[in-house]
Design a protein around this nucleic acid. Structure first.
Lengths: 219, 219
DNA sequence: ATTACTATATTACGAGTAC
DNA sequence: TGTACTCGTAATATAGTAA
C-alpha cells in the first residue's frame, strides 16, 4: 500500500515541489532511526518513487499517480455500496435463450452465481443518465464465466455481476461478443422474469448491484 | 499506513459484512505465504482491527474509521493546494502594533516565516461563505510562534500560516488569545500593507494560502 | 479442506562511525 | 551539520506439519 514514508512526504508537500527534508526529519516523522530512513529513501529513489537533489526530496509523477489510483480503489470500496439502474424492458432477439441452454454456461453460472439460469435473457434499456453508472459498474471486478468451444462453434467469455431485479435475484451479464450497445443491459435470473414480474416490453424495472457481493454456495 | 491486508479486506467488502475469506486467499491477494497471512490476521485481530468467526472476517468499526481518517489526510494533502479568501479591510484596534514590536515575536517570525514583520496588523473581514475555508485552513498544521513572558506580562503563542495578500507576502496569524471572531483574519507582512497597497477600511483584498509551503530561510 | 504451531531462513533494524 | 556505510541483533518470513 502507500508506505509511511510516502505518506509523510505527501504531507510535507513533496508532490508539489522538491522539499528540503533531512533523513532525520523523515526518521522522526515515521518513527524509525535516521539510518533506516536513509536506507528507505535510497530504496524509494531506486524504485523511481522519489527524486533527490541538493538535499531536496520530491515525489515523482509516477508515485503521485500510483497514490491517486490506490486512493480511488479505496474510495470505490468504501462508498457507493450499491449501483442502481432504472430502465424499461426491451424486446430481445431470442438469441439469449440459446446461450443460456449451453451446458458449460449453466454449470458455471450455477457454481459462480449460485443459481441455475432460466433459459432466456431479459434486455433492459437504461436511460442516458445511467450510462455513466454502467461504466462505474464495469470498473468493478466481474464474476468471470469462461468461454468454450462446442460443436465447432466457439462461445465467448461472459462477465457477470450479481444483481437484484425488482426484488428478484439475478445477474447482469456482459458477453464478450455483445450484440447490445451501452444503452442495453442483459439480465439473467433463475426465474422467468417476464412471467414472474408480469413484464412486457416497456415495463419499468429497477436493477440493483451490490458491490463486492459474492454469493453463498449452497452446502 | 493502511496495511496491504486491510486494503485487501476492504476490496473484499469486509467493511460491509463478515466475508468468507481463507488465509490462503489473503496470502494470494497480498503476495505472502499462507502462514504469514494467518499470523497477520491473528495480529490484526489482537489489535482489534478485524473480527473473525466461523471462517468469516470483518473489519471493525474502529478500523474503518481509521481508514477514513487516513484517507482524509491524503486527500487533504493531494488536492486543494491553495485556499483563497476574499475580504474587506476592517479597522483594527491598534493592539496589533504593540504585539508585533515584541522582540521575541519579531525574532521568531523572522526565523520561522522568513520576514521581519511590519509593526502592525491588518484586519480583514471575510464573508460568511469563507468561514468554512477558515476552518479548513485551521486543519492545516500551523507554523507555531511560541509564547513568552516579559515584564510580568505573558504573551500567548501564535499560530501562523504563510500567505500572499493581494500579491505581497505575509502571514495569517491566530493569536492564542484572539480578540477577533470567526469573521476576521489578522494579517502581518514585512510591509506596511495599508500604505503599499493603498488600502483603507472597506478595501477589497484577496488572501491566498498555499498548503505545505514552508519558507526558505535566507542563507 | 483450513488454520496455526514450531523451527529455520531471510530481511530489516539501529548503533557506531567515516565521510 | 547531514548522509550512508558496516555489522551484530531483532523482527518477520517461509517450510514443514499437527490439529
Amino acid at each position: 500500500m502507500i508506505s509511511d514514508i510516502v505518506f509523510f512526504l505527501l504531507k510535507k508537500g513533496a508532490h508539489l515541489e522538491p522539499r528540503r527534508i533531512t533523513t532525520g526529519e523523515v526518521a522522526e516523522g515515521i518513527g524509525v532511526s535516521q539510518q533506516t530512513a536513509s536506507r528507505k529513501l535510497i530504496q524509494l529513489e531506486k524504485e523511481g518513487q522519489i527524486s533527490r537533489s541538493q538535499g531536496r526530496i520530491a515525489l515523482t509523477q509516477n508515485a503521485i499517480l500510483e497514490i491517486k489510483s490506490k486512493l480511488k480503489e479505496i474510495l470505490n470500496s468504501l462508498d457507493g455500496t450499491t449501483i442502481t439502474f432504472k430502465g424499461k424492458v426491451a424486446s430481445g432477439l431470442g438469441e439469449g435463450a440459446y446461450y443460456m441452454r449451453q451446458k458449460h454456461y449453466v454449470k458455471e453460472f450455477n457454481s459462480k452465481l449460485c443459481f441455475k439460469p432460466f433459459p432466456g435473457t431479459l434486455n433492459v434499456s437504461i436511460g442516458e443518465d445511467d450510462i455513466e453508472k454502467r461504466l462505474v459498474l464495469r470498473e468493478q471486478k466481474p464474476i468471470v464465466i469462461s468461454g468454450f468451444t462446442a460443436k465447432s462453434r466457439s462461445f465467448g467469455r461472459i462477465d457477470a455481476y450479481r444483481c437484484s431485479i425488482s426484488g428478484l435475484p439475478g445477474a447482469i451479464i456482459f458477453p464478450e461478443r455483445s450484440l447490445h450497445g451501452l444503452q442495453t443491459l442483459e439480465i439473467i435470473s433463475p426465474f422467468n422474469l417476464r412471467k414472474k414480474l408480469l413484464l412486457s416490453d416497456g415495463s419499468d424495472v429497477k436493477i440493483e448491484v451490490v458491490k463486492n457481493n459474492p454469493c453463498e454456495p449452497k452446502a
